[in-house]
Design a protein around this nucleic acid. Sequence first.
DNA 1: TCATATAGGGATAAATTATTCCCCTATTGT
DNA 2: ACAATAGGGGAATAATTTATCCCTATATGA
Lengths: 128, 128
Amino acid sequence: MYERKIIPNLNCGLDLIGEVIYGKWKIRLLWFINEGHQRPSQLQRKIPDASRRVLNIQLNELEKHELVTRKIYPIVPPKVEYSLTEFGETLIPVIAALGQWGDEHEQHLRHVILKQIGISDLNDTLTS
Amino acid sequence: MYERKIIPNLNCGLDLIGEVIYGKWKIRLLWFINEGHQRPSQLQRKIPDASRRVLNIQLNELEKHELVTRKIYPIVPPKVEYSLTEFGETLIPVIAALGQWGDEHEQHLRHVILKQIGISDLNDTLTS
DNA sequence: TCATATAGGGATAAATTATTCCCCTATTGT
DNA sequence: ACAATAGGGGAATAATTTATCCCTATATGA
């Protein structure tokens, strides 16, 4: 595992929440697990742009941070199910607020983001 | 400026909000600007762990994303003030929700974060 | 027998983000 | 003359995060 060389700040609530949700796919993982997509293969299908590898890594971190639990069924082929812990569930309303803000301002966000990236990528983005 | 090689997903609200707030200091910048710390030097004093350079870069991005505006006073020594746009203001309640969750679960978060990083860093973190 | 599905991890490359260092302008105070 | 303050940016490097590729194991169906 990677070992940090710069010690993180843990001064305020924003620092603390950042430590556990800052990761490209973590919020989506929590969201989909909450929606009932509990198995790794299901999650991968819901998030096809992420590689299986990263999802595993980020799921491990979520588990270490006690936001999710992992249940292994001793059968073949293997079966694993992730569930939100009570702690993890408290985060759902916050994630909902993030997603809602994004949805409410979709038009404007798309505009300013594409403007910055460069309009040349517009087609790629829309067709992906 | 850096040019992306991987095209971002802009499928849902979570993708969109991520594009504008995903950055180590952005949320704090928005928060402090909202609190009235509008000048770059003030912001730097509020966030001493970030270098002046990164703050400038992230402020530029926030401006491009139309979350803040930059007002330059043509005097010497120079004076600059950042303000939230109306759009930026709509993000404040969301940031507040993030910070509040972090504050409410401070004990538990500290515990799981330090557990993962390694307790050896405990002293460093507490005295920094 | 061979492909598929299931779950996971090691090693390494690439992409992205953040830090460091140094440079520029002009005024005020010592 | 020199340091400090105000704001800003280029270039190089470090740190961190993601992506890619390849390998393990077992059972089922074609």
